[in-house]
Design a protein around this nucleic acid. Sequence first.
DNA 1: CCTTGACCTCAAGTGGACTTGAAGTGGCAC
DNA 2: GTGCCACTTCAAGTCCACTTGAGGTCAAGG
Lengths: 153, 153
Amino acid sequence: MDIAEAAKRSGVPASTLRFYEEKGLIRSVGRQGLRRVFGPDVIERLALIALGRSAGFSLDEIAVMYAPDGRPKIDRERLASKAEELDSLIGRFTAMRDGLRHAAVCPAKSHLECPSFKRLLRVASAGLFEPKAPGVPAPRKMTAPRKPRGTKS
Amino acid sequence: MDIAEAAKRSGVPASTLRFYEEKGLIRSVGRQGLRRVFGPDVIERLALIALGRSAGFSLDEIAVMYAPDGRPKIDRERLASKAEELDSLIGRFTAMRDGLRHAAVCPAKSHLECPSFKRLLRVASAGLFEPKAPGVPAPRKMTAPRKPRGTKS
DNA sequence: CCTTGACCTCAAGTGGACTTGAAGTGGCAC
DNA sequence: GTGCCACTTCAAGTCCACTTGAGGTCAAGG
């Protein structure tokens, strides 16, 4: 499988595949001339990486967990603590969502006069004092609609 | 209220206050010599900004909503759509949290052999095809424990 | 054989939200 | 009146996960 094929199968851009390889997150099984050749397992590996990212792990954290060899020791404590992080995040998001929904239909002249809105303000301020905010993958920019553009297929 | 006072009251670093002012998110009521003087309302304003950030709005979006004058038209449609975004995010996070919790106690030799884990993989991959991912404030770095360091108080 | 264009490398750029550093000003406690 | 240091400005740096561009190589189809 060449890089274009891997990109197509996984949905991950070729540039990202090179970047991941450089970071040690994936490996190519060899080269044909200059060109990387990937084994079929790279697809699963990429799914694993996407999973980690979705869960809020950084690439560096993922690199440690899914070590360079095969699939390695995914530290269960780490998973559990990440789950807790997510849980509290979910709580905050839920409050935020409900607050937003209310604000969207709230009849108060000014939002500042609405008790629900004020409650929301407190939630937000509370978040301020948690510098440990987990964070989600990233609101990526996506320059262009990712057109495959002339893959030799 | 000088900038140090505003920083202390709001919990927002002075550098950020300057940055926000430059961006037009807050305003100082005047100067004493070089020094900015803030009105008491800046605190509420900052809470409002924190609220917007928590809900996933960018500073630019917030700048538009909480316009330069007083407190302006917070577009209700926008709020509702942000609530929907949050809602779907909550759904993904919840799946992720549950998956992580399971993985943390899963008895399967390899996570790859666990059906729940595979389901999780699918969730993650699904997320891949949503470039519109909302995103949360930011996994800020927080250089030092933010010591007030000799505020004249 | 020769062109083509997909692949390669390496350096630099991007974006959002700030932070940091250098150099300068001036309010206020003494 | 004067020294200190909190404030000022402006430019540049940071972080993360990539993307983009320039300049180059080479496998394969015609």
